[in-house]
Design a protein around this nucleic acid. Sequence first.
DNA 1: ACACTCCGTTGCGCTATGTGCAATGACAGT
DNA 2: ACTGTCATTGCACATAGCGCAACGGAGTGT
Lengths: 253, 253
Amino acid sequence: MSQSLDRALTLLTHLAKEPKTLDQLAEEIGVHKSTVLRLLRTLEEHHFVHREGVRHYRLGTALFDLANQSLEQRDVRRSAEPALAALNERTGHTVHLASYEDGEVVYIDKFEGHHSVRMYSRVGKRAPLHCTAVGKVLVASFPPRRRQDVAAGLDYPALTASTITSARDYLAELDLVAERGFALDNAEHEDFIHCVAAPIRGARGEVLAAASLSVPRVLLDLDGLLALVPDLLAAAEEASARCGWTGHEKGNQ
Amino acid sequence: MSQSLDRALTLLTHLAKEPKTLDQLAEEIGVHKSTVLRLLRTLEEHHFVHREGVRHYRLGTALFDLANQSLEQRDVRRSAEPALAALNERTGHTVHLASYEDGEVVYIDKFEGHHSVRMYSRVGKRAPLHCTAVGKVLVASFPPRRRQDVAAGLDYPALTASTITSARDYLAELDLVAERGFALDNAEHEDFIHCVAAPIRGARGEVLAAASLSVPRVLLDLDGLLALVPDLLAAAEEASARCGWTGHEKGNQ
DNA sequence: ACACTCCGTTGCGCTATGTGCAATGACAGT
DNA sequence: ACTGTCATTGCACATAGCGCAACGGAGTGT
């Protein structure tokens, strides 16, 4: 809708990868360099980008300032932190906190596993709903009608051999998830990783977010992963308690 | 320079505090609400803001995504992390990592103290150079000429009773800092807190950032704080080593 | 020392773009 | 049903933002 703003935001995402020069940016987004220069100047005034030397621009500090302010607002994150940090400490595996947004999963916190295998995820990153354990937990928390709408709107790209590829299968999986209270991603997103996830609930029993454990298959087979479920559930319940959850009502949406 | 972009960025900073409605935003930045609406729509397309319910907007996830990518680029942060985390663990006090940017200090990492007193700081936040220990360390690392320029350009607001309020005193303090290798903020920034800071150096001996310990005065008197200096210096040296620092050359700039 | 190249920067003139206004629509409270 | 609050849309005007082309300064090779 707003051309210059649109371009400026595009610039920012391009700068995220690495510092770039004016010309590079101009070429990448297909806009005349004088225009890019002017946009960058405005961005710089607001500390959204920063000049490095004379010719390189990189992302500026306003970005993390805003991001941190905003994250502090997200009560789930703050409230869940201790429980998830402890889970990470205890198991040594990667812990994610994620929420639903616009037909995708968004990671809102992450605790790195102690082993050296790094996952390709990051706070703020988005992931599909159909092949992640957190996605399943979140969608499974919706009332049936909404579940169907969401399921019908997905694409189901097969990211690995075991990815669920149809709305029918997905809905069946969601029933299972809702019933047993946790979700499994059996190498459906990345070949070498499998995960379990559980919901974190708020005061009215509504699901605020999902917490997951992600483990490389070389470290732990499926049974080993499932053995961690009680730990995960305990952490999710502790986090829920911190978010105001009291009873055991299941509470939809 | 670019009006619409300028307004959009202003919107973002206003949204940081708390979610707002269209009308509120329009009034706060003094622009017609239809205009604000269009800007918000563009921001929303890029996930920079997110609609909460029908009438509230809050910051979106693109922000954290970018912020994290940007922080990961900052090698100092990644390299210094283990040493600073250990320092935080060992002492139990708040540890900051900060760098110089445009006549201010910018916090690029923070490890919360274990005690309950929280400091008013945040990753991405800026602070003055004249009344922070990290600021002194960073400016003291500049060559004399640049030190003077910077010192002359500051405002010296007296934030507490002990704040340094003149360029002359500040320059004298910087000499002292450069000589002994660490800086002190004796409740010059916040009444109830005092800090010590030390430089983190890169491969050529240049100062990349400053690390600091901040302690509430009720927990530790000045002598107690100074007793932590060796710990701090050790951590800063370890971090420096990780950043490629080898020798003991002091290295300016 | 000179020419050459590479980039960031500036001035200019045009028009698409972003704007304010006023009317409309959606919704909630009384 | 009436009223008030707010988001949303259509429209017409003016200006803000655009691409162009020329400039300038730093770096490089001969």
